[in-house]
Nucleic acid binder design. Sequence first.
DNA 1: GGAGATTGCTTGATATGCATAGCATGCTTG
DNA 2: CAAGCATGCTATGCATATCAAGCAATCTCC
Lengths: 134, 134
Amino acid sequence: MATDAKERGEEKVTLGQYLASIRQDRRMTLREVEEATNREISNAYLSQIENDKIQQPSPNVLHKLSEIFGIDYGRLMEMAGHVVPSKRRAPSERHGRIATFANYHLTPDEEAELLEYLQFLRSRRKTSSAKTRR
Amino acid sequence: MATDAKERGEEKVTLGQYLASIRQDRRMTLREVEEATNREISNAYLSQIENDKIQQPSPNVLHKLSEIFGIDYGRLMEMAGHVVPSKRRAPSERHGRIATFANYHLTPDEEAELLEYLQFLRSRRKTSSAKTRR
DNA sequence: GGAGATTGCTTGATATGCATAGCATGCTTG
DNA sequence: CAAGCATGCTATGCATATCAAGCAATCTCC
């Protein structure tokens, strides 16, 4: 247990972070995404979303993005703070499938590095009682 | 025009009409509904919604109303013109060989750090070439 | 008839989604 | 270096969701 991550700030993946990482994973530029949406979503606006300048992008926007990227619309809705049908609303996020890496096109190399990094993270956390990071 | 929404004709019922008729059915006043939502939705705003002055009430508002009235949230979303998340999840199981991370049960904290690290990894070896070292 | 409450609605103000245009930096090549 | 383009981001402005306050019609009950 332990895991008092909530108390220390920056832990949870934001909608912006998630979308940005997905876009990079797909190797697309902001303008390419704009193109892909038939100019329905401007690159400028996308930038704001990725930097969390927009608090709640509309469902239609999120849907378009989920189509482009081939990711789950419901999850985007959730991350944006919208209530999703058939999902129980709980203030405390039980982890579950927040940002599963299945959505990323990881190369074997990347996967290896991530695993290694994860081990590093965990070892560090177990041994030293961690404090301010970075 | 506060006629019953039971028009025999096939004109489609608007969100406002629907909500108004439901509220009347429940025999509640605008202010009672406002109360029932813990004042999250003002009676003034409700009035505008019922008269279709508002084109797209936010999902959260619609959800609250669906709770109060005990009606289907998804339907309200649809009537409001929002795309409703369908669970018709396509066979997007392209991950195949790299589902490794699915086996780890990452805390939100770890997931965030991994994502950040992945972005870091990719940001440096952008698209081959270039010996740029920022 | 008038005070007082109740109910639906309008209005003015504010917040925020979202677009167009433009900026800053980086990279490439003459 | 300058020119050019690509990429991410910012500045500005408009549209609209949402609220607080107030108004008009109604229904009491004296």
